[in-house]
Design a protein around this nucleic acid. Structure first.
Lengths: 156, 156
DNA sequence: TCTGAAACCGTTCCCTC
DNA sequence: GAGGGAACGGTTTCAGA
């Protein structure tokens, strides 16, 4: 699956793109010691290999009108397939992150809502799904850290 | 704080940039009915207003060698200031997301590690911090959904 | 892996609405 | 205040060596 080998130059390029994805290849090349076309070829290879999934914009939820954030643990009825969970929650744009997890709960969702009433309504609608036995939620009080995933820093 | 007003054209532009942040202004303009310079002015305004925090690359953790992911609840000793938590966990590059939360625990961390041994070692080191009373962690079994935050879809 | 040239794009300025 | 159009300089993207 992960058929990509990254050398230190690739990691430098990725780090620079994490900081600013609209940096020019010439600028990146000047920092890593390559020409623009050499950088482009490496980026193309990283995209083809799947290490780079795409380029996107970092948005400020607060500035877009999203002021309430919370996590919701989902406890599902016996033998609910993960795909059923996925299909049901994908209909809610407020769910920005969802994983099946170990432990007592079956899944953990991260929800971003415009305000508390909005959050509550989404929570009710999710709790009303047929496969949901119960939910347990916590609100985010303040964001301490929000980092993109970067290349391996050192051997574990 | 959120001194930004977004009209439907702004939301279209942001949606297109979420899909591909390296799209040219001319290409975006052709899709929203503006010229390249008009699009640039709007993007500049969105950046200045804080709605757009920057441009970045979407990476595939698995392809970069990160195979284990988990959530860690932090239970801290009485009156640990959030900034102390932040300062301590910021030293671990494996912590990609951290928030103070309501409920019994004080903070929730998301950790991305190379393998299970790596995850365990990070967990031990975080648990050994002076202000940490105990931790409770769950492993991510599979990612169901991973979405970027987008503009308001409809009125809440 | 680099060079070079052509096409393309980002950026700015001025004009119009 | 916001968009259109043109012009300049830098960038991307090929070919070819």
């Amino acid at each position: 699956m992960s058929g990509v080998r990254l050398d230190p130059v690739d990691e430098n390029i990725i780090t620079l793109l994490v900081e600013d994805a609209r940096r020019s290849f010439a600028d990146i090349g000047a920092r890593v010691g390559l020409t623009a076309s050499a950088v482009k070829r490496r980026v193309d290879r990283l995209r083809a290999g799947g290490a780079i999934a795409g380029f996107t914009v970092r948005l400020e939820p607060g500035a877009l009108g999203w002021t309430v954030e919370g996590y919701v643990e989902l406890y599902c009825r016996a033998s609910t397939p993960p795909q059923a969970i996925r299909a049901a929650i994908a209909r809610f744009p407020e769910v920005v992150d969802a994983s099946t997890i170990s432990g007592e709960a079956d899944a953990l969702l991260r929800i971003v809502a415009a305000d508390m009433q909005h959050f509550e309504r989404v929570l009710e609608q999710i709790g009303a799904q047929a496969f949901v036995a119960r939910t347990k939620s916590v609100l985010v009080l303040s964001a301490l850290l929000r980092r993109p995933v970067t290349p391996l820093h050192e051997a574990p």
